Amino acid sequence: MNVEIEDLHVGYAGRDVVAGVRLLAASGEIAGLIGPNGSGKSTVLRTVYRHLRPAAGRVLLAGTDLRSLTAAQTARQVAALPQERGSDFELTVHEVVAMGRTPYKRAFAGEDRSDRETVAAALAAVGLAGQGARRFAALSGGERQRALLARAFAQDPEVLVLDEPTNHLDVRHQVELLTLLRAQRRTTLISLHDLNAAASLCDRLHVLHAGRLVASGTPREVLTPRLLAEVFGVRAAVTDHPLTGDVLIAFDHREAPSTAEG
């Protein structure tokens, strides 16, 4: 399922925080949103999972305007892992993950065998097999992150919207998460601060700066020394990863950035 964002404008307190953004996540593609803090990444993603209503522009799912769908119809197609995540659920891990089945249930309907199997598979996918009986509030930050990702998987969506999903994860679980997302091959919109992770994971990158889209393309097309200096304010060399051949960014931690390099 394609996700297209057309001329998106979102404002707070009378000013645009996102202005004229156009971007695409093609069917089965992982599209990354990168940019400095405050560049508008989370705001764009919130419009896709309907937490925000844009002042202008459209979000299209397979060519259908998101605003023409009911909340239930959207929930069957789009699952989100936002940055603002609850941590005080007085629920078990299984119960939290089972919330992902809600769009498919009638009011007050109980959990059936298919739901239980889906929840178990989602927990196993994120490395929490056998942990369903634990209290969600007792989990570590990284475990909560993985449980909430399992909830998104249990929703069985066409589209995943993930806002900084590697936050709170140690290196091993970051690598496992990125490997899992590649294997899923669902249409995915994801924001990441780790540019090397974005280069490795994403088929396409969209760069936001001050609420505007400033570059789009493959990681190799987008992640140039000039862009890294101009947008992120860092001096860096771009080379090939010795193990994977992906783009690898080597940051200079000693000198100020220069925008003169191409």
Results as ranks from 00 to 15, higher is better:
178 L>S: 00
113 R>V: 10
43 T>F: 05
87 S>L: 00
52 L>E: 10
31 A>Y: 13
211 G>T: 07
17 V>H: 03
130 G>I: 00
36 P>H: 03
93 V>Y: 03
261 E>R: 09
249 I>K: 01
238 V>H: 00
31 A>W: 11
75 A>P: 10
45 L>A: 00
60 L>P: 11
71 A>Q: 10
216 S>M: 06
151 R>G: 00
135 R>Q: 15
99 M>I: 09
91 L>K: 03
242 P>Q: 03
182 R>M: 02
130 G>N: 06
186 R>K: 15
35 G>I: 01
238 V>W: 07
99 M>D: 05
68 S>N: 12
211 G>S: 09
155 Q>I: 06
9 H>M: 07
252 D>C: 02
250 A>I: 13
166 T>V: 12
220 R>L: 02
93 V>E: 12
183 A>R: 15
16 D>C: 12
72 A>N: 12
83 Q>R: 14
109 A>R: 14
155 Q>A: 12
254 R>I: 09
128 L>W: 02
146 R>Q: 08
257 P>H: 04
188 T>A: 04
109 A>I: 11
15 R>C: 01
110 G>N: 08
210 A>K: 07
241 H>M: 09
14 G>A: 04
69 L>D: 02
89 F>K: 05
78 V>I: 06
112 D>H: 07
19 A>Q: 13
116 R>A: 15
206 H>K: 02
212 R>V: 00
136 F>V: 01
100 G>V: 00
84 E>S: 09
90 E>F: 06
77 Q>I: 07
70 T>Y: 15
240 D>P: 04
215 A>H: 12
95 E>W: 12
201 L>H: 01
139 L>A: 08
87 S>N: 02
235 R>F: 06
13 A>E: 10
205 L>M: 11
149 L>P: 13
260 A>N: 07
262 G>P: 05
112 D>S: 08
25 A>M: 05
257 P>C: 04
215 A>W: 15
135 R>W: 15
171 V>M: 15
171 V>N: 08
106 R>Y: 13
49 Y>W: 07
174 Q>Y: 04
183 A>L: 10
79 A>D: 14
5 I>Q: 04
66 L>C: 13
204 R>N: 08
132 G>P: 14
246 D>Q: 07
